[in-house]
Computed example of a mutant assay.
Amino acid sequence: MPGPAFRTAGPGETGGAIAPPDPWDPVVRLTHWSVALAVVVNHFVTRPGSAAHVWIGWGLMALLLLRLVWGFVGPHEARFSAFPPDPRATMSHLADLVRGRLRDYPSHNPAGAAMVYALWITLAAIVGSGLVMTGGRSPIAIAEEKAAVAAGDWSVLVDNAAEEGERDRTDARIAGELHDVAANLILVLALLHVAGVVIESRALGRNLVRPMIRGRSR
């Protein structure tokens, strides 16, 4: 098994090997694990269309927006410029993985970067289609609507039905289908992501998950 691909010291640096980068700052770790938890809960625990499901969906939207902003103003390793999508570099990295000649990157490696962008795009599809399906209503509005119906006030449903008639029902149906496909796809991508982390951890000879939990090594 190949060992860690440490680089040698450059000009002006002290001798010896330089430890591989550990770029996961608190915001990156927060968004990573919060998104993972939210996706699992909304897929396996909450009921689709329920207030809890919508609340978590809005939470996912907030996390996605936070990571988007952090990709421009955060530390260098967290910025999009540090890991641009590059299909050619991705294929080269995978070929190096097969040959056992991996090297460290200051941020995501090319294959990891490709997976990150795929996950973000899929997450955006889930959030966007969910907003279309709920008519953009907030979780508070949906909860109030359900409470009113439970109390016997059906007028709120009549009002919403009128609004629904003004929207394109075809768009709502397509959004529902997209939501289901994206929700299943993100689980497949997550499993591939986990498999990739396991394989790279073995190839590099170190645990790649620990820094995402503990942050920068002291």
Rank of each mutant, 00 (worst) to 15 (best):
P106W: 02
A113V: 02
A125D: 11
L63G: 08
G112V: 01
G71C: 10
A89K: 01
L94N: 02
A125C: 14
S92P: 03
D86F: 06
Y105K: 03
A89I: 00
Y117K: 10
R88L: 11
A114Q: 08
G100I: 03
R79H: 08
G71Q: 09
P75A: 10
D86C: 03
L102H: 02
R101Q: 10
L66Y: 07
F72V: 10
R101F: 02
A114P: 05
R88K: 13
R88P: 03
L64M: 13
L94G: 01
D96E: 13
G112E: 01
Y105T: 00
L66S: 11
P87K: 07
P106A: 08
W120N: 07
M115C: 07
R103M: 05
P84R: 08
V73W: 12
T122A: 15
W120L: 15
H93M: 11
A124P: 03
L64V: 15
A125V: 14
L119F: 13
P85D: 06
S81T: 14
A111N: 06
V73I: 15
G71Y: 13
L119Q: 14
P85C: 01
I121K: 10
A89F: 02
V69Q: 04
P87L: 04
S81Q: 11
V69H: 05
P85R: 12
I121W: 14
W120Q: 11
M61Q: 09
L97N: 03
S92V: 10
R79D: 07
A118T: 10
A125H: 09
A62K: 11
P110A: 05
D86M: 00
H108T: 00
V73H: 13
S107Y: 05
A124C: 09
R101G: 00
M115N: 07
Y117L: 12
R101Y: 04
L119G: 12
D96Q: 13
R79M: 11
R103N: 01
W120G: 13
P75Q: 06
I121L: 15
S107I: 05
I121M: 13
S92H: 08
L119P: 07
L102A: 00
H108I: 02
R79Q: 15
F72E: 09
R101E: 09
L68G: 15
A113N: 01
V116D: 09
S107N: 08
V69W: 12
E77W: 02
T122L: 12
L94R: 05
S92A: 15
R79W: 07
T90C: 13
H76A: 14
D96N: 08
L102C: 02
G71L: 10
L123H: 11
V116T: 11
A114T: 09
W70T: 10
P106M: 06
L65D: 02
G100N: 04
A113H: 02
E77F: 03
L102I: 00
A62Q: 09
L66K: 09
